[in-house]
Nucleic acid binder design. Structure first.
Length: 775
DNA sequence: CACGCCCCTG
DNA sequence: CAGGGGCGTG
């Protein structure tokens, strides 16, 4: 049953949403907002042509029995009148046709001569409807169960109704059943049998109703009376009543058609969004597979979209079949079911307003219903909005999840990463500061397997400082902040992105920050005017966000590849690919390698939007690299650091942190020097010349343990020389008693700082660690 | 004032 | 190794 499914899905969604945090939640809320706006907008629109009666709950047989001649006039009047209190009706679309019919009927009973067809509309207007509702409320308070007694309905459906009584709050589909039953009942209302049955039960009340018709309402009579009365009087007041019925029906049908149309609209948008994702994803996959021969292959996107969809479905199955909701048909079904359900809920709401809720089953729903009774049944729209919100956000979640956890979804990660690397390169140029950059630099590149635990000390500092310094979005604990002003990439078409997604560009706020989606993933070649990358076709704008998601997959794949192939292969790879961008080996294309070697991995795990190559944080690998660099330079300049950490988006914080690192390195270094110098003095060494620092020296071992713990780097001889000089400097200074001077070390520093040697070029490569440590 | 470095502390 | 205070420099 669709209704039941929708309930289940809602529950699941609720669970999901509870689990979901940060971005996804933001996405969901954004979608919800947009969906609600859209829905409300459409609800405010004028009624469209009556084309679809699928959602109608009222039997059309009534319409068939009506005379058409006067109907239009009556309808006009009724509609006019309806418009007069449209404020009452329109905001409460949840009121069902049935209830409206009943009300009208009651009003008619109160003040209308059954034979007076023309005046029925006007006579039934005014407060009769409200009075009728009040009457229902009052009466239901007196006898709550009267409002929805199975006996008051068709005897042919007692089982369904009783079960409905039992489970109405938890079993949605029974409401649909009830709707059908009521329709059937209404259809059968002309049958003498039905009349007989109902009149048997309600003769007194019926008489009472008739006798008290002057009151313009059925005060004190419960819903059961209305039901029976309706059935009884239908034959007598057929014309006026059916006219009212028709008007009400049409009114309600209009509302429902409208809602349904809106739902379909939303569903279309969903489908479009789906397709966009598929297309993007597909094109991305294709790029990965096709490597550098991207141009001209984009046309295959559509061809391959089916397979892609299949992949997505598979992915969805992996993720609790959530992706099944991506199916527009299912969504539409759910929407329809929702409409039916809502209509029934509202009808029931009015029928048993005060009927106490047995048990706590679906207490929330009950509360919702009661709230609707009190607030006017606005929850049809609310429920629809919620459902839409849930569906849309879930779809987005699924897609995002699919992209962010590619290993689950993609059975065979594509082996080629070049295009995206180039894109990353472009992204990495730092044109667009990505808030997700803050997630960068977290994993241990050297540890073949990325572990979240690799996110260690270095990052927090940068994050904090970046946040404090204002410009940088680096707080990983927060969802991506509002994206910076739209990117200025020349080849980017941000608006087309939203347009292509089937939403109104001006109003629709894409769940993904547009800069993140559209900008950073543009073809890097485009930024150089080369245009060799992707044909600026209609799908160009599609690759924005999926690229970011692809990054995660690519990163994962790259890591796998790295583990097996080693860094040099990759670096060559990238050299070839990055040649059009005029970047040397130390260029950003290599920085891609570095980040993809693991720095981004954890970003990928954290956020589906990861995709930045330039990191705003320093990773443990950066620290290791800095330590190795310390073997060459003790006093690196800021410029040198920038050159040798080209994969880091430098800012004050990064620079300060790197400088601080080297300061700490020096501190340890000098502490060791002083310690060993004093130790030598204590051991009786009298001449500095006796002090030598070899690879087997204790001093060296201490230093090497600190800067080259794994001992997987061959310390240059020059460092040994410098260490020896430093040790002797300390020795001499101490022997000379200079250590009495508080700043006696500064002279030594001056000496040592001149002993810096050139750091090998290989350190400029982000992949230097792989290359160096594998030598 | 900003920056870099040292020194100290945790 | 990070944070913070202090100091010197441009």
């Amino acid at each position: 049953m669709p209704d039941h499914d929708s309930t289940t899905l809602l529950t699941r969604q609720t669970k999901r949403r509870r689990v979901d945090i940060g971005v996804k939640r933001a996405v969901g809320s954004t979608i919800f907002t947009r969906a609600r706006e859209s829905l409300l907008d459409s609800m405010n629109q004028s009624h469209g042509p009556d084309q679809d009666a699928d959602c109608s709950l009222v039997a059309h047989s009534h319409l068939g029995t009506n005379g058409d001649g006067e109907k239009s006039n009556v309808l006009r009047k009724l509609l006019k009148r309806a418009n007069s209190y449209e404020d009452t009706i329109m905001p409460f679309p949840g009121a069902t046709i049935i209830s409206q019919l009943l009300k009208n009927n009651m009003g008619k009973n109160g003040g209308i001569n059954p034979s007076n067809k023309q005046g029925s509309g006007a006579l039934s207007s005014g407060g009769s409807e409200i009075q009728a509702e009040d009457a229902c409320s009052n009466s239901s308070r007196d006898s709550p169960l009267d409002c929805l007694s199975p006996g008051s309905l068709a005897p042919s459906q007692p089982l369904s109704l009783s079960s409905f009584d039992l489970d109405r709050l938890s079993d949605e589909h029974l409401r649909a059943k009830r709707a059908r039953v009521e329709n059937i009942i209404r259809g059968m209302s002309h049958s003498p049998l039905v009349r007989l049955n109902t009149s048997d039960h309600n003769q007194e009340s019926s008489r009472e109703n008739e006798s008290s018709s002057s009151r313009g309402g059925v005060v004190g009579v419960g819903e059961v009376y209305r039901e029976n009365k309706r059935k009884q009087r239908l034959p007598q007041q057929q014309h006026s009543f059916t006219q009212l019925v028709c008007s009400r029906q049409e009114q309600r049908q209009e509302e429902r058609r409208q809602l349904k149309l809106q739902l379909e609209d939303m569903q279309k948008q969903l489908r479009q969004l789906q397709e966009k994702f598929y297309q993007i994803y597909d094109s991305e996959t294709e790029e990965e597979e096709n490597g550098e021969k991207e141009d001209g292959n984009l046309s295959e996107d559509s061809i391959r979209s089916d397979g892609l969809e299949e992949r997505h479905r598979d992915r969805g199955q992996h993720t609790h079949d959530n992706l099944s909701e991506l199916d527009p048909g299912l969504f539409l079904d759910r929407a329809r079911a929702l409409l039916r359900e809502q209509a029934l809920i509202d009808g029931e709401m009015e029928e048993d307003v005060d009927r106490r809720v047995e048990g706590d089953r679906n207490g929330e729903r009950v509360m919702k219903r009661r709230g609707g009774a009190a607030g006017g049944g606005r929850h049809l729209a609310e429920t629809l909005k919620q459902q839409l919100n849930c569906a849309v956000s879930q779809v987005v979640d699924i897609v995002v999840k699919g992209f962010s956890s590619p290993k689950q979804a993609v059975s065979s990660p594509t082996p080629n990463y070049h295009p995206s690397n180039q894109r990353l390169h472009c992204f990495g140029d730092g044109i667009v500061p990505s808030p997700l950059d803050s997630f960068g630099g977290l994993s241990g590149r050297l540890s073949g397997v990325p572990t979240p635990n690799d996110q260690t000390e270095a990052l927090p500092l940068v994050v904090r400082k970046s946040g404090g310094s204002g410009g940088e979005n680096t707080n990983p604990s927060l969802p991506p902040p509002p994206p910076p002003p739209l990117p200025h990439h020349p080849s980017l078409h941000p608006s087309s992105l939203t347009a292509s997604l089937g939403f109104n560009p001006p109003s629709f706020r894409h769940p993904f920050p547009l800069p993140l989606m559209g900008y950073p993933f543009q073809n890097p070649l485009g930024s150089h005017g080369g245009g060799a990358g992707y044909a600026p076709g209609p799908k160009d704008h599609h690759r924005s966000s999926p690229d970011s998601m692809d990054m995660t997959r690519e990163t994962v794949s790259l890591r796998t590849k790295m583990a097996s192939l080693g860094g040099s292969h990759l670096s060559h790879h990238h050299h070839r690919q990055s040649s059009p961008t005029q970047h040397g080996p130390e260029g950003l294309s290599l920085s891609l390698i570095k980040s993809e070697c693991g720095d981004l991995q954890d970003m990928a795990d954290i956020s589906p939007y990861s995709g930045s190559t330039i990191q705003e944080g320093l990773s443990p690998n950066h620290l290791k690299k800095a330590k190795l660099m310390f073997f060459y330079t003790r006093y690196p300049s800021s410029n040198m650091l920038k050159m040798y950490f080209s994969d880091v988006k430098f800012n004050r914080c990064i620079t300060s942190q790197l400088i601080k690192w080297f300061s700490n390195f020096r501190e340890f270094y000098y502490i060791q020097m002083e310690k060993f110098a004093r130790q030598a003095i204590n051991e009786g060494v009298t001449a500095a010349e006796e002090l030598t620092v070899g690879r087997d020296a204790e001093l060296f071992r201490a230093l090497n343990m600190h800067y080259n713990k794994a001992n997987d780097f061959e310390v240059p001889d020059r460092f040994l020389e410098v260490a020896q000089v430093t040790l002797r400097e300390f020795f001499n200074a101490i022997v000379a008693g200079k250590d009495a001077d508080p700043s006696w070390k500064k002279a030594i520093y001056k000496v040592i700082c001149k002993l810096d040697s050139e750091v090998p070029e290989v350190f400029k490569s982000p992949s230097c660690l792989q290359e160096l440590l594998h030598d």
